[in-house]
Design a protein around this nucleic acid. Structure first.
Length: 848
RNA sequence: GCCGGGAUGGCGGAAUUGGCAGACGCAGCGGACUUAAAAUCCGCAGCCCUUAAAAGGGGCGUGGGGGUUCGAGUCCCCCUCUCGGCACCA
């Protein structure tokens, strides 16, 4: 008993000892995970996980994201690919600045310190990142190129400055892009803070120039989740329609003599009984003149709309409006219709003006009923060819908004179907010069100005004499000055740094003022993955030939919360760079995977809820291998994962079992040659299970990505090995099978539990690095079952199981089944109608 | 309101093409080892009925209702709940 104890200690799986040993060894080799250069003859594989914001420490969501990516990277290494697996830091952003304000720590210092810590965590977790390619977006060597790109955009008319109503988050003390406002009107970072509307002069990037291509190319992204493509399609919001000019009756003002409306239903234009304008419509002043009560009314409507927008409930607004006292002429029938102003008309969609057709639009109908406007039916629920007639019995239930329709009361267009009418009427409007077909998008240009310090300075100058001009490219980067004392009172912090603001005009040599806003951090993440291909390149953002080799990214992995924001900006940026001639690909990402959230007690982990599980804690208690493997085992990667500590223990127990098994039999298998060449039934069973396991794991990597089931398969295999332990201990088990099984077990484990796999590989006497060892080949002959157990049903109910040699012809299967006692008992005295045999699976006997 | 995902034991989940529902893991129960416990190993384990008990047998069962089929967690129709996205977008 006493002599048993040292042996027990030796067999205990101690992840700390094993992981620290291999950690030290791996750290000593900086090129261990380095990709080969782009002239490599090997096939490339670019696997990428979304880069983190260096908030201070990794959370479980990160660990899950990176565990998926790392398993894949390791697998592809073992398949012989030239794997690019980089990591970096989305290092500009508000938390650093807020921490600086609170604790008087310079944002740079705070950020770099966090990066050091998180990088150490990543290394400890054993991820295969090529750190020589690390990208840190807050460093001048990186953000210099943000500035350079911005200048190219400016030159190409893709960046412009405009005063407009913008989303303002009081908590962030800066402007937000449309994509950064949640649907309830709150800030994406401060889910409790309502975003306000402010009028500001801002820099915009013309994403809408690529709206059509961004939409069209979604169809090519077959390896993206359908869900993400749908979300982007909705976000771009393409809508086909027509613009139609309505002449204003009476004197024209400075804003012109007509109102242009956008409509998708020009076929209903004969039913237009009023024009409705957004309260902010530029024509408003002309129309209402100096009627004070009307002015006040328009102000009210504007305020109501603003409030509803802020509440994120523009859809729930109670419709109000007012008659402006003026009329417009419907160009199709020369009819005079009243011009109204209404709080439900949005200035930032279409033209901010609509023709109101109460009979065939729900909103117009509601409004018309409220204010007693005329409701005129101009379409019937009919197809062409069917007899038409404005019979009262045939009046549709109003509002009738279906497309399937036939025109009535529409002059020369009567009798046309909806589609014909849209074509003919658009053409008619175009011929007569008062309208045309058009396409509008919900997508807006991207406002990138931020009134904050910790970001890329926008490289623009404002000269009193020469006007707006970009900083000359040879003067880049415009360095972000060090600042410790940051306050958010009164706009951009940089405006209070005279050394920064004051500059010399490159044209006239006179005094000029720098732009003091910084860029949205989504600029940084829009192209960082190109920089990885040549991260230290000094004179260009990227090398085209290198990008050609590595792109597109073969697999991108990250949270679905970026489905619109980051992923639409990135796609835009790629198209822009392609048109600059910098890259040749039109899309950055070939295959996208969005993993689910990590939750605890049914809720997303957050400090507020106090349900945060620390990766450091898990690693300290169970080891990196168990932590990573549990993150893969607990749920399929695309679904949410409920973190259960008992589950981590379970995975840890499995690794212990694996460890003990190889420690016991790894060496004996190698030295013993007993029973070599003779494969016992137990040996055959292990061989079979081994190859079935190889197939399951390999298949999951190749397609399905259900790592939870391949971990389960490996668990089954170790259970099977323990099932023959007695035979092994007695020396009745074929040594070659045992040795082979253990070697391949370790190889299968390598992508999931790299530390333990490395240790056991060494125990088995292997010298090479697992990452460079070929993945085990699946042998279908070895995986084949000798005997198949058929499930036998009678009228669909399971009645018996009958074992039949594999590949038995159907007749033999039938014979064996009919000979079975239980089956005969079930069939007793009944008439067999038919018998269905599913080869290799099941027999169903149908009786009467 | 529109679009998309999901609902399977006490829990996380499995069932890949319409073919044995509940793999694997957790929790639970029983046994072995131990003075004892932990650890470990082996076994049982959806629910209900039948039985003194066990063996055995039978019925029900994948959110609810209907359908197709020899056969449905899987396909079709209707409904409920839930999570996500969008929402006077003219």
């Amino acid at each position: 008993m006493t002599e048993n104890q040292p042996e027990q200690r030796e067999l205990r799986y101690d992840p700390r000892q094993i992981e620290e040993k291999w950690f030290a060894q791996w750290q000593a080799d900086p090129n261990l995970y380095a990709a080969e250069p782009h002239d490599s003859k090997r096939k490339k594989y670019y696997v990428l996980e979304m880069l983190p914001y260096p908030s201070g420490a990794l959370h479980m969501g990160h660990v899950r994201n990176y565990a998926i990516g790392d398993a894949l990277a390791r697998y592809m290494w073992m398949r012989g690919y030239n794997v690019l697996h980089p990591m970096g830091w989305d290092a500009f952003g508000l938390p650093a600045e807020n921490a600086a304000i609170k604790n008087k720590v310079p944002p740079k210092e705070w950020t770099l310190r966090n990066i050091e810590h998180m990088k150490a965590q990543m290394k400890r977790l054993g991820f295969t990142y090529d750190w020589s390619r690390e990208v840190t977006t807050c460093l001048p060597e990186y953000y210099k190129w943000n500035q350079w790109f911005f200048i190219q955009m400016y030159k190409g008319g893709l960046a412009y400055r405009k005063k407009s109503k913008v989303n303002w988050c009081p908590e962030c003390a800066t402007v937000l892009a449309n994509e950064q406002v949640l649907s309830n009107g709150c800030c994406w970072r401060h889910e409790e803070t309502t975003v306000e509307q402010r009028e500001l002069e801002q820099w915009f990037v013309r994403t809408t120039r690529y709206a059509e291509e961004l939409l069209q190319d979604l169809d090519k992204l077959e390896n993206w989740p359908e869900k993400v493509r749908i979300m982007q399609r909705n976000w771009i919001g393409r809508s086909e329609g027509a613009l139609v000019d309505f002449k204003i009756d009476g004197p024209a003002g400075p804003a012109g003599d007509k109102i242009t409306v956008f409509t998708t239903r020009i076929d209903t234009i004969f039913g237009a009984t009023s024009i409705q304008l957004a309260p902010e419509h530029p024509m408003m002043a002309d129309l209402i003149g100096n009627d004070h009560s009307l002015h006040a009314k328009v102000e009210d409507l504007m305020r109501e709309q603003g409030k509803a927008k802020e509440a994120g409930d523009i859809g729930g607004i109670e419709k109000h409006g007012a008659f402006t006292g003026r009329y417009a002429i419907n160009p199709f029938n020369e009819e005079k219709i009243p011009i109204w102003v209404a709080n439900y008309i949005l200035m930032d969609y279409g033209t901010g003006a609509i023709m109101s057709v109460p009979a065939h639009d729900e909103r117009d109908h509601e409004f018309a009923q409220k204010y007693g406007l005329e409701i005129r039916v101009v379409i019937l629920p009919r197809r062409t060819g069917e007899p038409a007639g404005p019979d009262d019995n045939e009046r549709p239930v109003l509002p009738y908004t279906e497309k399937e329709s036939l025109l009535i009361n529409s002059g020369g267009f009567n009798g046309l179907s909806n589609n014909e009418a849209i074509e003919k009427m658009s053409a008619y409007a175009e011929q007569h010069g008062f309208g045309k077909k058009t396409v509008t998008y919900r997508l807006k240009d991207w406002g990138i100005s931020r009134q904050r310090y910790w970001g890329t300075p926008i490289p623009m100058l404002y000269c009193e004499k020469c006007g707006v001009a970009p900083v000359p490219e040879d003067q880049l980067p415009v360095l972000l000055p060090d600042m410790t004392e940051i306050t958010l009172q009164g706009g951009s912090p940089l405006a209070r740094v005279p050394e920064f603001v004051n500059a010399i005009c490159p044209q006239c040599g006179g005094r000029t003022r720098r732009e003091t806003d910084t860029m949205d951090t989504f600029v940084d993440s829009s192209w960082y993955f190109y920089r990885y291909t040549n991260a230290r390149l000094a004179d260009r953002p990227l090398d085209t030939a290198t990008v050609d080799y590595w792109f597109p990214i073969d697999q991108y992995i990250g949270g679905v919360e970026h489905a619109i924001l980051h992923l639409i900006y990135s796609r835009f940026w790629t198209k822009f760079m392609r048109d600059l001639g910098l890259v040749h690909n039109s899309e950055p990402v070939e295959r996208l995977f969005t993993q689910g959230m990590v939750i605890k007690n049914g809720a997303k982990m957050s400090k507020n809820k106090g349900n945060v599980v620390s990766p450091d804690d898990m690693v300290a208690r169970f080891g990196a291998d168990s932590t990573r493997m549990y993150a893969l085992f607990a749920a399929p990667p695309d679904r949410d994962l409920e973190w259960q500590e008992a589950g981590v223990e379970g995975v840890h127990r499995f690794l212990s079992r694996t460890f003990r098994f190889v420690m016991r039999y790894g060496k004996t298998a190698k030295s013993s040659s007993a029973h070599d060449g003779v494969i016992t039934p137990a040996g055959r069973a292990i061989q079979r299970k081994l190859h079935q396991t190889i197939k399951r794991v390999t298949d999951d990597f190749q397609g399905r990505w259900h790592f939870n089931t391949c971990v389960a398969a490996i668990m089954e295999f170790i259970n099977e090995l323990y099932g023959v332990e007695e035979e092994i201990a007695k020396g009745n088990f074929p040594a070659s099978v045992l040795a082979d099984a253990q070697r391949k077990l370790v190889l299968l484990l390598a992508p999931f539990a790299p530390y333990l796999a490395a240790e056991l590989w060494q125990v088995l006497g292997e010298k090479d690095t697992l990452l460079r060892h070929p993945w085990p080949e699946y042998d279908s002959a070895l995986a084949r079952e000798d005997e198949i157990e058929y499930a036998v049903q009678v009228n669909g109910k399971l009645r018996s199981r009958v074992a039949v040699p594999a590949d038995s012809p159907e007749e033999v299967v039938r014979e064996r089944v009919m000979a079975d006692e239980k089956v005969r008992a079930s069939l007793d005295g009944k008439q067999i109608v038919k018998t269905i045999v599913i080869p290799g699976k099941l027999v169903n006997v149908v009786i009467k």
